[in-house]
Structure formats: structure tokens, C-alpha cells
């Protein structure tokens, strides 16, 4: 079951097209990554899902139904440009925002206490937002986003502006929310967090979808047939005895032993490489080098811009 379906969404701004027939299916209970370089149209898509702006063509479905105002309370949105009322007190503000999302005052109060304790910010309740640092305000804003425990959470660049400790705290929370059944869409440039958290991704470049799917499939798709081998033994013998079907790309030695990277020609299996290596050296470890999302991102985006 898809929680969110975007169907050929088109959005034009005066003069240029921000989204060109972008489709996306976000399965319930998944973490969905929305990737793309700056200005690709990620934020526009997220705003359309949030009903802040309307698409010019196409449609957004929420649990199979065309999305409408009643769905607002089931969505929590953390925009890229963070903002709170500067002159308002933290606690009052959090209460206000929670009540806008349909929580009762007492319920909001109860949940806020738990969250404030969890984030160790209980003593900020009576402070004005303008007295907080940027990172502190971000924490408050994160809490206000998730407080009403919506079915869908949308984070636009959730990790920007946080220190590594808080990034980890945030990741834990996001995973916890997934475990509790929430669906999460987030956009980011931080590819490491994508690998760590996301089940699916859509990569948008210049208003178009250029890559989409489950993250494991994508990495499979972009595998480059490279293998990293840790071995002990004579290096001369290794280079001398290597079959011509395999190419030695790189070799280094450090305290842990010697490492070499091989590439297999197309059509060959990794088993043949192992058999070959066993004859000429002692293998301590052997594993495939899968491309990182970072590499894939750069490759896809560069390819796409070459085409244009």
C-alpha cells in the first residue's frame, strides 16, 4: 500500500518548469529519500505534497485518495528554511503549532513534556525563540513537526545545522518513528544518511526524475564489478600470476596487511577471480565494492547534465 502517490506532477513558475511529470510512490512504513542537486525541484514537490502549493497538472494521492485539507493533520512538515515566531515563548509556540494540527491542549502538553525531556531542553520552555541558538531552535522545530504523531513525516534537509551528536539523535528518532509505523519522506544532500536510512529514493535533476527505486536495487544496478581483496603473500607473485581476464586497479599495504582492488571484465563471475587468487596468494578477505550513493548521485547527475 502506498501512502503517497505522486502522479505525473507538473509545476510551472513564471517562465520555468519546476517539476516535469514527476511520479513517485511512497510505500507505507518506509523511509523515502528525495535526492537531487540544489534547485532541482525537491522542495517544490514537498510543498505540493503539503498542499502549500497546488500542482498545475497531475495529482497527489494520500492512501489512494486525492489529497485534501483533512489530510493536513496527518502530515508533519519540517521545511528547509526553519522558522518560528521569534518573539513567542518556546512552550507556547509548540503548544500553538500542535493545536493547529488538531491536538488538544492537554494532550499536546503531555507529549511536549516527554519530548522536551528526551531532547533535554525542559528548561527552555519559558524562553523566547530569539534567545535560542540556531541548533536549539531546530530541535524545538523538529519536536513541533513530529508532536502530533502524523502518518506522514516530511523533512526537508533535516540534518543541516545539527552537530554530529544531534544528527545521530535525530536519526535514532527517525528510525524509531518508522518502527512505530510512520512513513517518512526526506530530502537531503547527505548521501551517507541516505544509505543509512532510506529504503527507496527518487533522484530529481533539473525538474525531471532521473533515478528511482529501492536503494538495494539501485546499488545493484550501478555495481561496477570491483572487488577488494585483503591478502598476505608475495606481491610479485600476485601481479605475475593474475589471469588477463582480471585487472588489478590498485594495491596498498598497511599494518593490517595488503589490499588490492580488482576489476572483472564483463561476463566473468567473481568465483573465477577467487579461484585464480587462491592459487597465487592467501586470501584473508574478499568483498565486492558497491558504489556509494554519493558516487551514484554524482554519476547520474553528471550524465543527465551532459545529455542536456
Amino acid at each position: 500500500m502506498n501512502l503517497i502517490t505522486a502522479d505525473a506532477v507538473v509545476k510551472d513558475f513564471s517562465g520555468h518548469r519546476a517539476l516535469n511529470r514527476v511520479s513517485m510512490e511512497v510505500p507505507e512504513g518506509s523511509i523515502y529519500g528525495l535526492l537531487g542537486p540544489n534547485g532541482a525541484g525537491k522542495t517544490t514537490l514537498l510543498r505540493i505534497i503539503n498542499q502549500i502549493t497546488a500542482p498545475d497538472e497531475g495529482a497527489i494521492l494520500f492512501e489512494g485518495q486525492p489529497i485534501n485539507s483533512d489530510h493536513r493533520s496527518q502530515i508533519g512538515y519540517l521545511p528547509e528554511e526553519r522558522g518560528l515566531y521569534k518573539k513567542m515563548k518556546v512552550g507556547e509556540q509548540a503548544l500553538y503549532l500542535a493545536q493547529l494540527k488538531g491536538l488538544s491542549k492537554s494532550e499536546a502538553m503531555k507529549r511536549l513534556k516527554i519530548w522536551f525531556e528526551k531532547f533535554e531542553i525542559g528548561d527552555w520552555w519559558g524562553k523566547k525563540v530569539e534567545e535560542l541558538s540556531k541548533g536549539m531552535a531546530q530541535k524545538v522545530q523538529f519536536i513541533t513537526t513530529v508532536l502530533h504523531e502524523p502518518k506522514l513525516l516530511i523533512f526537508d534537509e533535516p540534518f543541516s545545522g545539527f552537530d554530529p551528536i544531534n544528527v545521530n539523535l535525530l536519526k535514532q528518532e527517525i528510525l524509531q518513528m518508522k518502527k512505530n509505523g510512520a512513513t517518512i519522506i526526506f530530502s537531503t544532500h547527505n548521501m551517507a544518511s541516505v544509505e543509512e536510512l532510506c529504503d527507496h529514493i527518487t533522484l530529481i535533476n533539473a525538474s525531471e526524475t532521473v533515478l528511482q527505486g529501492e536503494i538495494s536495487h539501485i546499488r545493484e544496478q550501478y555495481r561496477t564489478s570491483r572487488y577488494l581483496v585483503t591478502f598476505t603473500g608475495d606481491r610479485e607473485k600476485l601481479t605475475g600470476g593474475l589471469d588477463s581476464r582480471f585487472e588489478l586497479l590498485y594495491m596498498e599495504e598497511n599494518g593490517m596487511g595488503q589490499k588490492a582492488t580488482f576489476r572483472i571484465r564483463e561476463g566473468e563471475g567473481s568465483g573465477d577471480l577467487i579461484r585464480n587468487l587462491v592459487e597465487i596468494t592467501e586470501i584473508k578477505a574478499f568483498h565486492e565494492i558497491l558504489p556509494s550513493m554519493n558516487d551514484i548521485f554524482i554519476e547520474v547527475v553528471n550524465d543527465a547534465s551532459k545529455k542536456n
Binding site: Q51, L97, T145
Partner: peptide
């Protein structure tokens, strides 16, 4: 910039 949060609610 709080406007975005509010108009999503």
C-alpha cells in the same frame, strides 16, 4: 519563515 510550517497546517 514560519509561514511554511503554518500553511502546511
Amino acid at each position: 519563515r514560519i509561514i511554511e510550517v503554518i500553511v502546511s497546517s
